[in-house]
Simulated scan of single mutants.
Amino acid sequence: MTGAFLAGLVAGYGVAVPVGAIAILILGLSARTSFRVGAAAALGVAAADGLYAAAAALGGAAVAGLLAPVAGPMRLVAAVVLLALAGHGAWRALRPRTAPAVPAEARRGLDTPARAFAGVLALTLFNPATVVYFAALVLGRQGGADPGVAEALLFVAGAFVASASWQLLIAGGGTLVGRALAGPRGRRVTALVSSVLIAALATAMVLPR
Results as ranks from 00 to 15, higher is better:
108 R>M: 05
79 A>N: 01
4 A>I: 11
117 F>E: 12
30 S>T: 03
54 A>G: 11
88 H>S: 12
85 L>G: 12
19 V>Y: 07
20 G>K: 08
60 G>P: 07
56 A>S: 14
96 P>R: 04
5 F>A: 14
28 G>I: 09
74 M>S: 00
27 L>E: 09
20 G>T: 12
44 G>M: 03
99 A>H: 10
4 A>C: 04
38 G>K: 09
112 T>W: 07
71 A>P: 01
53 A>P: 04
36 R>G: 13
24 I>D: 01
94 L>I: 07
111 D>C: 06
96 P>Y: 02
28 G>E: 08
104 A>E: 12
9 L>S: 03
48 A>I: 07
117 F>M: 07
63 V>Y: 00
12 G>L: 02
36 R>K: 12
42 A>T: 11
51 L>D: 07
74 M>G: 05
49 D>H: 15
46 A>Q: 11
95 R>H: 11
18 P>D: 09
15 V>G: 00
67 L>H: 03
72 G>K: 12
66 L>N: 08
71 A>H: 13
84 A>V: 15
46 A>S: 04
3 G>S: 08
32 R>Q: 13
25 L>S: 01
67 L>K: 01
112 T>F: 04
26 I>E: 09
13 Y>M: 12
75 R>S: 13
114 A>Q: 05
81 V>W: 14
50 G>V: 03
73 P>D: 01
80 V>Q: 12
76 L>K: 10
99 A>R: 15
23 A>C: 09
31 A>R: 05
28 G>Q: 10
64 A>G: 15
85 L>D: 04
60 G>W: 05
30 S>E: 08
35 F>T: 01
64 A>N: 03
30 S>W: 02
56 A>H: 11
113 P>Q: 01
49 D>V: 07
12 G>I: 12
70 V>I: 12
69 P>M: 06
48 A>F: 12
8 G>R: 10
21 A>I: 02
55 A>N: 04
112 T>M: 03
92 R>N: 10
29 L>F: 05
52 Y>V: 01
80 V>A: 15
114 A>Y: 01
92 R>W: 05
95 R>Y: 06
89 G>V: 09
10 V>W: 00
73 P>E: 03
97 R>C: 10
92 R>T: 11
100 P>R: 15
23 A>W: 05
67 L>R: 05
22 I>T: 15
102 V>N: 02
89 G>S: 11
58 L>M: 10
16 A>L: 10
83 L>R: 01
49 D>Y: 10
33 T>A: 10
26 I>P: 00
46 A>T: 13
41 A>V: 00
78 A>Y: 10
83 L>S: 07
100 P>F: 07
41 A>W: 08
44 G>L: 10
80 V>R: 11
103 P>S: 10
114 A>I: 12
105 E>H: 14
45 V>E: 06
77 V>L: 15
11 A>S: 13
22 I>C: 06
108 R>V: 14
116 A>E: 14
105 E>V: 15
14 G>A: 15
27 L>P: 06
8 G>A: 03
31 A>K: 11
16 A>I: 05
68 A>N: 07
51 L>A: 13
3 G>N: 06
47 A>K: 08
57 A>E: 09
83 L>M: 13
92 R>S: 09
83 L>C: 14
100 P>L: 13
